[in-house]
Amino acid sequence: MSTECHIFQARPSALRRREGLVFFCFRAATYFVLLCGALIFGTIVFKGAGSVFQVRAPFLNTTFLTEAPESLHVFEFHGQKMELGDGDYRVFQARHPDVARVKSESYIYSAGGIFPCIVGTVLLVLGSMAIALILGVSAAIYLNEYARDGRFIRFVRLAILNLAGVPSIVFGLFGFGMFVIFFGWNVSLLAGWFTLAFMVLPVVITASEESLKAVPRGFREGSLALGATKWQTIRKNVLPYALPGILTSSILGIARVAGETAPIMFTAAYVVRDKLPWQVDKFSEFFFQGVMALPYHIYVVSSKIPQNEYTERVQYGTAFVFLLIVALIATASIVLRSRLRNRYQW
């Protein structure tokens, strides 16, 4: 043991110990968040990936992704355990009439796939984001570029902030009262689009305004000094540079729009629907039809049917596909954003 002691000698002290403890807590908190995330994603991926991917070529379970939900019939037939979807069960019945005497259990939605839900969610996201972006960006341009700061504008901003804090179920009920009943649109894509759009509008407006503010003043002045009108300036020399930021905000919006169940529960979502959205007689009917949607389907299959080995496939599979789609849309937006950003940099 060295007895040498110098003026910078490290010594254990209460101060040091306290510091160590505090940093340990911070680290533990961070790891705990990580653990929760890993558990959620891990469970869904572990249990759900099997419904979507398979070991044999083409490695993708096309039935699950491209077909409508069916009931699953489970029965024992001549000592052999059979699990058949609705369609196959009927074919089987026709071929073996004596199957009617066998006791069979059936589980709804547990066979087939979730194609209509995927289509419905994609349609809901596209439509509502289009509406939210058009309304939101227009409002942001007005607030940031045209409106003079005054009491009214401050009030508008306050209203937008408050709107952001409204629970989604309230938006759902508002949409139900306003679009479904008052406008008479019934449970329809259109009602769902507007309800979801209103829900993400505050996010889109606030973020668009921030992105517009981030565009240097010099670009506006330079453009105006060349004889551009205010609108020409905004369209050619402000909006293009603000677009990456606006897209970033809309990524968050997409995840929310795709994931919310409450707003579409009353306005757009069907538990089950045989027809696909494009199977309409008239073009106008397209907007006035309800659709199946992933989040609502997750709600239905997780709360309305029993939990067992036969239903697990669709329960976790749906959640997995849902995560996959949100990730896909988000990735696409991020790629688009970075492309735009590379084009306009200052």
Binding site: P216, G218, F219, E221, G222, S223, Y344
Partner: peptide, 11 residues
């Protein structure tokens, strides 16, 4: 026309 203090070429 005008030229500004801080050069402001558009991106």
């Amino acid at each position: 026309g005008m030229v500004f203090q801080k050069s402001n070429p558009f991106p």
